[in-house]
C-alpha cells in the first residue's frame, strides 16, 4: 500500500466512526465529571447585574421564543433568569414568540417549581390564594406572612413561595407576535385578556402594577431564531424597553453589534452563556449549586478538542496525500 493510499483511506473513512467518536466524547466526561471552572464575560454580567438591581416592585418579561429543537441551549438561560427574578421577588411575565415556545415556558416553570430541582420554589396557583386577594393582600411580603400564618409551611428543600398572578403569569403565544409586542407597549391586557389557564389577567396584582411594557424593566428573550430581533425592533425602538438576549450559539456572533450599540444590555450566547449565568447565580449566593448548562461544559470542552483534532487530521491527510494538487477527491460514504 503506497503512502498516498493511506491518506486517501483516512480521508474516506466511514463517517460512522466519526459519529461514534463524538458519541464517546459526549458521554465519558459526564461519567467522570471534571467540573472545570468557567470565567464570566461582560456580555453575561450585563444581564446579571441588571436583573440583580431589580426588586419586588419591578417586573421582567421572559420570552420563550424557541421550539424544542434548541431547548438544550435556551432552556437553561430562561431557567437561570427566572430563578434570579424569583429570588429577588421580581415579577415575571412569560410569553412565547413561536407556538411551541408556550410548551417550553410550561416546562421551565415546572422545572423551577419541581421538588426534585435543587432550590426549587413552591408554586401557589391563582385560585388557591383568592381569599387573600379579595382581602387586598397582594404585597409580596404581606402575602407571604399572611399565607404562612394560616398554617402553610414551606416544604423542605423549597427556597420560597411563588404566587401565580403576583410573582409570575404565563401569557403564552399569540400569532404575529411582533405586533403583540407593539400592542403590549400600550396595554398587556388587550393583547392577553387571559393567561394560559384561562384566568382573566386584568384582576391579577402583577398586571395592576405593570399594565404595559412601559411599566416593565427588562425583556429577556431566549431565542432559537431571529425572533429575538423583534423585541429590539418593536420593543426597544418603540418605547426604549431594555432588552437582553439569550440566543443559541449559531446566532450569537450575529448580535454583537447590538451589544456594542447598547440596544441590548447583554447576551447569553449558547450553553456557555447559560453556564456563565449559573456561575454568577452561585457565586452571588442566589442558588446553592450550578445547573445543567455548567454540567455540560466538560463535554463541550472534550467535544471541541475532538473536533479540532479532526480538523487537524483532515488537513494533514489532505496536504500530505497531495490532494490539494488534485481537483477531485474520490468520495465514499
Amino acid at each position: 500500500m503506497s503512502a498516498v493510499n493511506i491518506w486517501e483511506k483516512m480521508l474516506n473513512v466511514d463517517r460512522r466512526w466519526i459519529f461514534l467518536g463524538i458519541g464517546i466524547v459526549s458521554i465519558v466526561p459526564f461519567l467522570i465529571g471534571f467540573g472545570m471552572p468557567i470565567s464570566t464575560t461582560i456580555e453575561v454580567e450585563g444581564i446579571f447585574n441588571f436583573v440583580n438591581e431589580l426588586g419586588p416592585d419591578d417586573a421582567i418579561f421572559i420570552g420563550f421564543d424557541f421550539a424544542p429543537g434548541t431547548q438544550a441551549e435556551n432552556m437553561p438561560m430562561a431557567v437561570a433568569v427566572m430563578r434570579h427574578a424569583f429570588h429577588n421577588h421580581t415579577s415575571v411575565f412569560m410569553t412565547a414568540y413561536v407556538p411551541l415556545g408556550k410548551g417550553m415556558a410550561v416546562s421551565a416553570l415546572d422545572y423551577v417549581t419541581n421538588p426534585k430541582t435543587d432550590g426549587y420554589y413552591e408554586r401557589v396557583l391563582y385560585e388557591d390564594w383568592v381569599d387573600y386577594r379579595e382581602a387586598g393582600i397582594t404585597n409580596k411580603e404581606d402575602l407571604t406572612t399572611a399565607w404562612e400564618s394560616d398554617g402553610n409551611v414551606l416544604p423542605e428543600g423549597a427556597v420560597g413561595w411563588v404566587f401565580e398572578g403576583r410573582d409570575y403569569v404565563l401569557l403564552g403565544y399569540l400569532p404575529l407576535f411582533h405586533l403583540v409586542i407593539l400592542g403590549m407597549t400600550g396595554s398587556i391586557e388587550t393583547q392577553f385578556p387571559v393567561d394560559y389557564h384561562g384566568n382573566p389577567i386584568g384582576d391579577m396584582p402583577i398586571l395592576m402594577e405593570h399594565k404595559s411594557l412601559r411599566d416593565v424593566d427588562l425583556a429577556v428573550t431566549t431565542s432559537g431564531s431571529s425572533a429575538c430581533v423583534a423585541w429590539i425592533t418593536y420593543g426597544r425602538e418603540k418605547i426604549g424597553l431594555p432588552i437582553a438576549f439569550g440566543v443559541t450559539g449559531v446566532m450569537a456572533t450575529d448580535y454583537f453589534p447590538y451589544i456594542q450599540s447598547g440596544q441590548i444590555v447583554g447576551q447569553m450566547g449558547g450553553l456557555r452563556g447559560a453556564a456563565e449565568y449559573e456561575v454568577l447565580l452561585k457565586e452571588n449566593g442566589i442558588t446553592r449549586t450550578t445547573d445543567k448548562a455548567f454540567t455540560g461544559m466538560d463535554v463541550q470542552s472534550a467535544a471541541h478538542i475532538f473536533i479540532i483534532l479532526l480538523i487537524v487530521m483532515g488537513n494533514i491527510a489532505f496536504f500530505a496525500g497531495g490532494f490539494h494538487k488534485q481537483t477531485r477527491l474520490k468520495g465514499r460514504r
Partner: peptide, 19 residues
Amino acid sequence: ATFGFTVMGRISLLIGRIQ
C-alpha cells in the same frame, strides 16, 4: 467565529439529549 460558535451550539444540543 460563527463557525466556532456553530460547533459549540450543535454540541450543546447533543449535550441536552445525553443529559
